[in-house]
Design a protein around this nucleic acid. Structure first.
Lengths: 220, 220
DNA sequence: AAAAATTTTTAGATTTACCTAAAAATTTAA
DNA sequence: TTAAATTTTTAGGTAAATCTAAAAATTTTT
């Protein structure tokens, strides 16, 4: 059984490992809002518990056990986010902090029943996949909106940025999950993208386009 | 802002204060499953923070601030219990431990919305009143079943014992909240009580009868 | 009202998760 | 391929919430 803090370390290491193979002390420290020295201490502890493999100065990787523990927390986090949005009418930019606390509630029964109550959702309010109780993710095929060409169509199915500012911005533009889009223009000047929605046309910066994930339903 | 542990102390002091006016160190220690020495330490801390009044060797009482904090936790605990039973189909004897964790989630917004989602319930699954967001309790008029006389009728509206064993026992006998009862006999020998339900008659010990709360709808 | 029993507090340690400052290892640049 | 910069670790300490053992205060009993 891990402490609240250990769980947070595992979760953060898991997320960092999605980008880089060996996760660095400084990167963990930044995410945990703590100092590298503290991270070293905790990593040793996690290594002693068999949750991470650790070679001095070489960063860490999760063990099988560690990864399973991390996935379990991710599962809880995302299920709670669905609950907050679907049942309590939170907006998608308001759920992160509360889910950050709820994810640590220790009751397998609770999560099984919550999952059922929510109708076994496959993705959270940001489109991130929810692992099933065995830790398995549904296969998802995302393309970054920025990679689409003029004339391409698709459906918004996720975002790769979870900041409240970003999500509120999308909301205001009407670029929410499930919306069907068509690329009507890409500006040479700054790479900004013009998008055709069902009822209107909107313009987004290249930066925004990078963080919108599309399930493509046909290339041009 | 109180720590998780401080919140538990406040809650326990609050509950103990419902029975005795000045709450003793040993009693707190027993409830907290810790040692009296640890309680003394924590009481000093709570006193420094202005949450309890404390005179050495004389026990503690909650201050206005302390009581409000405690009531807030009780509110959260009971609302979560309603959620678990009404929405996730937990049994009334299964909810305590999980609610014990959920009560510490810090988000006013979450609790307001949960309250609304649940339809602003007035009582938890054990019949205990749920304070509103201003900390006010609905007035409830309970009588212990043991105090009823033969021929008296009433409705089961609460219990004063929350152990799983007790609650399962009641469940098995069909003595659940909302059930209408009539006292058909009280045995001289051991004080056990015979109860007439809509569809059957059951016999309970004096000990069980002490912990069933009735809203009386007419004496004999 | 003294003696005995109980309750409560103090003193001194321990553990967890931090910290700062300095040393050591690794990586990057000249 | 050294020197400089960066990253990581070690060493030594702190605060929160505990503990045990012993001392002090209070309450109960005789």
């Amino acid at each position: 059984m891990q402490s609240y803090t250990e769980e947070n370390y595992l979760k953060i290491i898991y997320h960092l490992a999605e980008k880089t193979t060996n996760v660095q002390t400084n990167a963990i420290a930044e995410q945990m809002q703590t100092k590298p020295a503290s991270v070293t201490d905790m990593i040793k502890k996690l290594a002693d518990k068999g949750l991470v493999d650790y070679v001095k100065y070489q960063g860490v990787t999760l063990t099988e056990t560690g990864r399973n523990a991390a996935i379990d927390i991710v599962r809880k986090h995302r299920l709670w986010e669905v609950f907050l949005v679907d049942k309590l009418n939170f907006k998608w930019d308001e759920v992160h902090d509360v889910a950050e606390e709820l994810e640590h509630i220790r009751s397998i029964e609770l999560i099984e029943r919550l999952d059922e109550f929510l109708g076994f959702p496959k993705a959270d309010p940001h489109g991130d996949p929810i692992p099933d109780k065995n830790g398995r993710f549904a296969k998802t095929q995302f393309i970054k909106l920025i990679e689409l060409k003029v004339g391409d169509t698709g459906t918004i199915t996720g975002v790769s940025q979870h900041s409240s500012a970003f999500l509120k911005h999308l909301e205001k533009l009407g670029l929410t999950l499930g919306k069907k889009i068509k690329i009507s223009d890409v500006t040479d000047f700054d790479g900004s993208v013009e998008i055709q929605l069902a009822d209107k046309q909107v313009n987004i910066s290249r930066e925004v386009a990078k963080h919108i994930l599309i399930s493509s339903n046909g290339k041009n």
